[in-house]
């Protein structure tokens, strides 16, 4: 399924009535089965864009168009930065949640959830609770939970930001492997350039707030990719190229946002 953002604007209204523009006209098309990353300085509205695509937040103006046959599948599912697992549900029941609220029978949903738990490498942890798991394992549950409803588009909001560097590296490879088997349309928000380049077909560089698309770069590295790519000098050069584009925005954003705590 293809996703098209057509001049999407979002303005937050503060309690005191002042308006904070978060997105100022985003135009972007994500093709079917494409993996696209959004990078940008913090507060640039990249997460806002994702929430709008998820239908969790209405745009102030503009629209998001989904085109293509979902085949009865849900349009989107979201993987959250802070995992957002239900602490009172076991791993299996967390993963099955989406099917449960869609009225899928118990036996079938547990079977499908168990298959996904296996796929993300958590066999044996089905009946554990989230607080018994490490951060990396929790986010595996978060990914399995989103994939379990078999969404046409997978939205990932800084899914690895809350993890330590080594876990992040490992999960990054798992996400790559999962994507190469499922070939879902993915919109992936991150502030980590290497992560974006390693995973994506295209990287979208956003401007500082109010966010708009500054630059879109196609990632030249062929698939299937392995971690060896990370040591490739070309990879480093490409990342640096993106960083140069991002740097002035990030610096300007840093200077502008002092003392400004409006939502990202």
């Amino acid at each position: 399924m293809q996703v098209r953002f057509e001049s999407v604007h979002k303005t937050y209204r503060r309690r005191d009535g002042t308006e904070v523009p978060a997105l100022a006209g985003v135009d972007l098309a994500v093709a079917s089965s494409e993996f696209v990353s959004l990078v940008g300085p913090s507060g640039c509205g990249k997460s806002t864009l994702l929430l709008i695509a998820a239908g969790l937040l209405p745009p102030t103006s503009g629209r998001v168009v989904f085109e293509g046959d979902a085949g009865g599948r849900p349009r989107t599912a979201v993987v959250f930065q802070e995992f957002a697992l239900f602490p009172w549900r076991t791993v299996l029941d967390n993963v099955a949640f989406g099917l449960e609220v869609r009225g899928v029978g118990r036996a079938e949903r547990l079977e499908r959830a168990a298959a996904l738990v296996r796929q993300v490498g958590l066999s044996g942890f089905e009946s554990r609770y989230p607080h018994e798991l490490s951060g990396g394992m929790r986010q595996r549950v978060g990914i399995a939970r989103a994939l379990c409803v078999d969404p046409a588009v997978l939205l990932m909001d800084e899914p690895l930001s809350a993890l330590d560097a080594q876990t992040r590296q490992l999960l990054q490879e798992d996400i790559l492997r999962l994507w190469e088997t499922t070939r879902k349309t993915v919109l992936y928000v991150t502030h980590n350039i290497q992560e974006a380049v390693f995973l994506s077909d295209r990287v979208v560089v956003m401007s500082r707030r109010p966010g708009r698309v500054r630059e879109v770069l196609s990632v030249p590295f062929p698939r299937p990719r392995t971690e060896a790519l990370l040591a490739d000098p070309e990879f480093g050069r490409f990342c640096h190229r993106i960083w140069s584009s991002l740097k002035e925005e990030a610096r300007a954003a840093l200077e502008e946002t002092h003392g400004d705590g409006s939502p990202a």
Binding site: G55, L56, A77, F86, F97, G98, V101
Partner: peptide, 15 residues
């Protein structure tokens, strides 16, 4: 209730 949990549920199709 943690608004993130509510968001997660809504995004997964909860009424």
């Amino acid at each position: 209730t943690d608004p993130q949990l509510v968001r997660a549920a809504v995004s997964l199709g909860a009424s």
